[in-house]
Computed example of a mutant assay.
Amino acid sequence: MGMSGLTALVTGATAGIGRAVAVQLAQEGAEVVVHGRDAERGADVVAEIEKAGGAARFVRADLADSSDVLRLAEEAGDIDVLINNAGVYKFLPTSGMTDALFDLHMDLNTKAPYVLVRALAPGMARRGRGSIVNISTMAASVVTRGTGMYSASKAALEQLTEVWAAEYAEQGVRVNAVAPGPTRTPGTDDMDAATLKAVADTTALRRLAEPEEVAEAVVFLASDRASYITGAVLDVIGGRPAIG
């Protein structure tokens, strides 16, 4: 219960990695602010946490709208741990991109975390402690077909991670990122077996990660167990297979 007495905000916490992170943070003793767009799914996550003896509440917000992001920060209150997990991914070649889709990726994957950090990190700094973990992707550093918009938005987030780490280090606020590889989420449910195997075979472990496995890395970086780690991007990608 190393996070007893702390409050954590997890964006995109109603499914996949975000949900697993919210549940594990609650198990560590944190009170969790569960963010999402679907109130019913949010209530389900809160109920799961409370059933296990934890504390949580749900706040709905549209992270594509900066004013709504600021409202989320205000309703969340004093936050000790911020997990910027919510995001969007649409895989298209450059010729198939649209201005609207490009803006959506940048707004959700890059601008929303920026607005939340700008709103919440100063309070952490005043209190002399805090931890921020941004969820990036393997595609930010590995060229992957059709991921231009997504990869660019997450690469920008990784750069911001390093900048924020330097800006807030002396005030006791750590900022890190986790870059997952292929992970089993609701988005993989529609994939056929052959596609899933092809994706899994891009890893040395030859399988997809479970959301809980990625969450373990996120919660570690968020916790005092990682007290001397800041400005890092931790790959959780199952290794890379050898060539040949």
Rank of each mutant, 00 (worst) to 15 (best):
I132E: 07
M191V: 00
R174C: 00
L234P: 03
R207E: 06
A156G: 12
A8F: 05
L196M: 07
E74L: 07
M124A: 11
V32R: 03
K90F: 08
A222C: 06
R126Q: 15
M124W: 10
Y168W: 15
G54Y: 04
I135R: 07
A217W: 05
I237Y: 05
P122I: 10
T14W: 00
V69W: 02
G181N: 04
V219N: 00
L70V: 14
L25D: 10
A76G: 05
G2S: 14
T202E: 10
L70R: 15
P241A: 06
A217P: 00
N134K: 11
H105C: 02
G53D: 06
K197P: 07
Q24P: 00
N134T: 11
V33W: 03
G172I: 14
K51M: 05
R126S: 14
D189N: 12
S67C: 07
A204Y: 11
L25I: 09
G96D: 13
L9F: 05
V59L: 15
R129C: 09
V88G: 11
V69I: 10
R126N: 09
G53K: 08
T144D: 09
G96I: 05
L196R: 13
A226K: 12
V115C: 08
A30E: 11
V33K: 07
A140E: 13
G42A: 09
F91L: 15
Q24M: 15
D78Y: 09
N176F: 02
R240T: 01
A47W: 00
V143W: 13
Y150K: 09
R145F: 09
E74K: 09
K51W: 04
G36K: 01
N176I: 02
A39R: 13
R145S: 08
I49T: 00
P93S: 13
